[in-house]
């Protein structure tokens, strides 16, 4: 029996095992006792237990064979309207057989990545198939979800986890796995994870892979040995005026890595906005430019050209700064 990734091994299996987000969990528990749930919309930062709590709810509701009653979709992988038309509708319209609960659950993770069209199609599906299916939408931001869907759902907002919560969890796992970990190690993991428990656990598992003591040095050397984010690298190359290199980096991301152009532009926007050495003024100007390129992506046929144009703008802005 293999134990796999610790995030899965130590994922709480029942609502009772979840220690934080107490208010939300107690509401979810009443749904289980009543054997009925409304459509749900769970929003909050990454790695705070949104998916975990809905999976735990499903296990409490359906028992060990819960997988047969749950359809997990990831909207960032399948974000178009066709997914809603085919997969979701067909799954939604069949009743849950051989279960004391009459409906099935459709989990749409990263629902804030669904296109507008897909969301509109979903709205109708949610209404028509209420008898046989409940939807649970999960996302980071509720702004990206259209109002008609929000109004059909009970919205739960997950807060970020306390440092103590994360440290407790990491300590618990370390004890069970017989790891040696010191306080500095826990501090470093918390800092590097930015409050994302999944990230923290993954890093703990990686940092302890060589079987030695986990301290701040081993955590930071782990971070150093992992390649920096490719989109960040691309942006920095462009800002440094190394246009050709940044275009090669773009090709690496688009072609080798196969990242969707929309995701590249989304991450670029995020990185520019929190860039340390760009002035506020430049950020406003770049927001306009990124917005235009984002729009052109939907209008043009060659994503690489459009994104390259963005790199051209970035290297010009960088040129003015130097």
């Amino acid at each position: 029996m293999s134990s796999g990734m610790w995030t899965e091994k130590y994922r709480p299996q029942a609502l009772d095992d979840i220690v934080n987000q107490r208010d939300i969990i107690s509401r979810l528990k009443t749904f289980v006792t009543e054997k009925n749930i409304p459509h749900l919309l769970l929003v909050g930062p990454a790695g705070v237990g949104k998916t975990t709590s809905i999976l735990a709810l499903a296990q409490d509701l359906y028992g060990p064979s819960y997988r047969n009653f749950v359809l997990e979709l990831n909207a960032s992988d399948e974000r178009g309207i066709n997914v809603i038309r085919d997969k979701v509708k067909n799954y939604a319209r069949t009743a849950a057989m051989a279960s004391s609960v009459s409906f099935k659950i459709i989990i749409m993770d990263e629902a804030d990545h669904l296109t507008g069209d897909a969301q509109h199609a979903l709205r109708r599906t949610m209404e028509v198939y209420t008898k046989t299916a409940r939807f649970c939408l999960i996302g980071n931001y509720s702004e990206n979800i259209i109002d008609p869907i929000q109004s059909r759902c009970s919205v739960f907002r997950y807060g970020s986890l306390d440092e103590a919560d994360i440290r407790d969890r990491l300590t618990l796992i370390s004890e069970k796995e017989n790891l040696q970990i010191v306080d500095e190690g826990l501090d470093a993991l918390f800092q590097a994870s930015g409050g994302d428990l999944r990230k923290a656990i993954n890093m703990l598992q990686a940092a302890s892979a060589n079987g030695e003591l986990v301290d701040d040095i081993s955590v930071y050397s782990l971070l150093g040995s992992i390649r920096p984010d490719r989109v960040q690298t691309m942006i920095q190359l462009a800002l440094d005026g190394k246009f050709l290199e940044s275009r090669e980096a773009l090709r690496g991301i688009l072609i080798n890595q196969g990242m969707a152009p929309e995701d590249i532009i989304r991450i670029t926007y995020r990185e520019i906005m929190r860039h340390k050495s760009l002035t506020e003024q430049k950020k406003v100007r770049l927001s306009d430019i990124i917005g235009e390129v984002d729009y052109r992506l939907t209008q043009g046929a060659r994503p690489e050209i459009q994104l390259s144009t963005l790199l051209g703008h970035l290297s010009l802005v960088g040129d003015e700064t130097r």
């Binding site: 899965e8 993770d109 990263e110 992992i226």
Partner: peptide
């Protein structure tokens, strides 16, 4: 296996797994 998107699996989890 980890209940995430392919993008997250590739960018966030895979480098650590590989490590």
């Amino acid at each position: 296996k980890t209940h995430t998107s392919s993008a997250k699996a590739r960018n966030e989890i895979l480098p650590l797994l590989r490590h």
